[in-house]
Design a protein around this nucleic acid. Structure first.
Lengths: 237, 237
DNA sequence: ACCTGAACACCGTTCAAGT
DNA sequence: ACCTGAACACCGTTCAAGT
């Protein structure tokens, strides 16, 4: 989107892994996952399809590199917040927004859970939990929940976005789903029935952030002993 | 796995969507996603590849039907627990175990977020939150977090399982990752450094359940006013 | 060292032809 | 109504041949 770098035919500079990856990202963003083929990539780079294999092992590596690039870039922006809690929220939103801007990324996470992009997220969340002074035993649990939630929701949400992009009208589609849900048997689906209306007006991003806050609140309860916690859950609800 | 229904050549009964879907599940479970082709499916069903299209629109629908079948089956087993909290945990585990037994399912969720399988999970969680008497305004948030976490983690975890299945030795691989992490710059990666050891010995399923409990604990705090909650988070940690 | 582009094996999907 | 299987358009990947 940002740079109109040498579109169809011209060859500004030599081929490089970086150029290939950038072009791949552009194709993925603009035309979706199915549009990323070695042939399309080669044409846009004004080269032969085989040339790409000199710089990239295969499609798997290409996708992984594209994902790494997107996440690294997202983590670079304003995620250096000093306050731990705000930093965690900032990371969560950075990941969410990256997934939103590049809907194909969601499906790629987890493909290389030990890549450099993942490491940044792991440390970004974990380091701040450390700074918060989270109890040692609970630290791993808390970290795991946060990371899994952030990556997981991002993925689900991106999948939804991908789906809805095919629909002409997002609100119309959601209205249809809500209407269908409202028609369900009230006795069998009391809950779905009830939230059918809220579905239409809810904001995914706000929803996501509310989830992060809820988990942070849960982490706050972790210092209590296990037995006490269990009772407090029952009481709390 | 359960039924050795008409393997390679014999044609017991007529083709049907159900038979096709069951065979697809068998192939996916045994040989992975890449192995599911219409040709392989046709051969195993002792028919022509085009015949499948009489019962199934395309590969997308086939995958969706297979996913629905797996989830519906998983939700059918012992998830009728009377106690709401235990019921939510049971659903979470049922989904987790289904993803574990069928690693391809994780990637398919979210493809049809409004399908019947999803509805069952939505209502299963939401109905129990209702029964717990969760505060109305917070109900939607709480439900969203739980559902997203359960589906998201399941997906991530299944992706990991898929990755590790290629590795000869799971523990050996994890040991390698841990060793790599331990070699990272301590100043830049204090947290990852610290958890490197725990990575090897942790149990994904337990970890997952700890996450569910943590979220449930967080839901318990939701009745407090927003301002009060924020302060309590800071205090809690 | 790096690029070209035809060739190979394979895929999802279609469809005229059969029963 | 349901099945067959060749045909079509397309894909990832390879590789002899070029510079």
């Amino acid at each position: 989107m940002s740079a109109a770098t040498g579109r169809t035919k011209r060859r500004g500079d030599a081929l490089s892994k970086e150029r290939i990856v950038e072009m791949a990202i552009a194709i993925l963003d603009t035309n979706g996952e199915d549009a990323l083929t070695f042939r399309a990539l080669a044409e846009r780079l004004a080269t032969g399809s085989g040339a790409i294999y000199w710089h990239v092992a295969d499609k798997d590596e290409l996708l992984a590199a594209a994902t790494d690039a997107v996440i690294t870039r997202a983590m670079g922006n304003g995620v250096r917040d000093a306050k731990p809690l705000l930093g965690i929220r900032a990371i969560a939103l950075a990941v969410f927004d990256a997934f939103d801007a590049h809907p194909w990324v969601g499906g790629q996470m987890g493909r290389r859970p030990w890549g450099p992009a993942m490491l940044q997220i792991y440390e970004g969340i974990g380091g701040r939990l450390l700074a918060l002074g989270a109890p040692k035993r609970a630290l791993f649990d808390a970290w795991s929940v946060l990371v899994n939630y952030i990556l997981g929701v991002g993925g689900q949400n991106a999948a939804n976005a991908r789906l809805l992009s095919h629909e002409i009208d997002r609100t119309k589609f959601l209205a249809n789903v809500a209407a269908e849900w409202a028609r369900l048997d009230l006795a069998k689906y009391p809950f779905v029935h009830q939230i059918a209306t809220q579905l239409r007006e809810h904001d995914d991003r706000e929803q996501f952030l509310a989830g992060v806050d809820l988990i942070l609140a849960g982490i706050g309860t972790l210092r209590q002993a296990k037995a006490r916690r269990k009772r407090s859950i029952e009481r709390g609800l």
